[in-house]
Amino acid sequence: MAHRRKSIGIQRIAAYATIAVALVVTLFPVYWIAANSFKYDIDIFSIPPQWIPANPTSKHYHAAFVERPFLIYALNSLIIAVSTTLVSVVFGSLAGYALARFQYPGRWRYQISFWILSTRMMPPIVTIIPLYIAFNHLGMLNTKPAVIIAYTAFNLPFATWMMKSYFQDLPVELEEAAMVDGDTRWGAFLHVALPLARPGLAATAIFCLIISWNEFLLALILTLTERSQTLPIGIAGRVTQYNTYWGEISAAGFTACIPIMIFAFVVQKHLVRGISFGAVKG
């Protein structure tokens, strides 16, 4: 909007100052957890606080990942996040395409779309008790598949909805041209619609990955054993009533953030696009 009137210097300086403050407020907590993860305990507790680690140490990383099973937690998190994302994106694109393109009798298309979206509105705490009992009966508590299934239930509506809006934005003539040229509808989906929806697929996958990597409540209830727990559960487990292992949880917490931060910068283009149209279109 280059047309908006050029502003005078003071306004501009105030604006830059505000943005700078926002950046500092945004970044400081992340810096602080990182800084503390590299401090000896005694430096963490120092008064006044030590702004920059005076004696950097990797002791807490060693404690978390070698002495305690945080490596297993991280691996569990990764396996669960990737599997959930795969299932959600595959099922979500199929359903999203169907809802974007096909006619259903009466108002069924609208009803199904709305119902799928509404399942996303269910607070997790509401479904978790029955899921817990069901998995208990099936002997699936403390297993990764149980967590993956539960996560899929929460990611699938979102993935379906996002892919639906993406497919709706693609011109339908492309698939029709493919069909006249000799493809089946399914072939047109595979050869034309899906390759063109790659940015949408990427954005959807990114969201599923982040949501699954960060999830806490479902994993807290469905897993009790080291072998099956995820990174957030492992971190929370070190905040006990009697003692908080600050260095260790800082190290683990910061580690949990690292992949997300790298990810955010690598895929920033998809992210903005994905979020904006995903949200704007509901």
Partner: peptide
């Protein structure tokens, strides 16, 4: 990249965020 930085917090694990603020 400024925008990406400003968006960062919402992507971080809430558990890690809680720990940070506890600190």
């Amino acid at each position: 990249f400024l925008k990406t930085i400003l968006m960062l917090p919402m992507m971080l694990p809430p558990v890690a965020v809680a720990i940070t603020w506890k600190l």
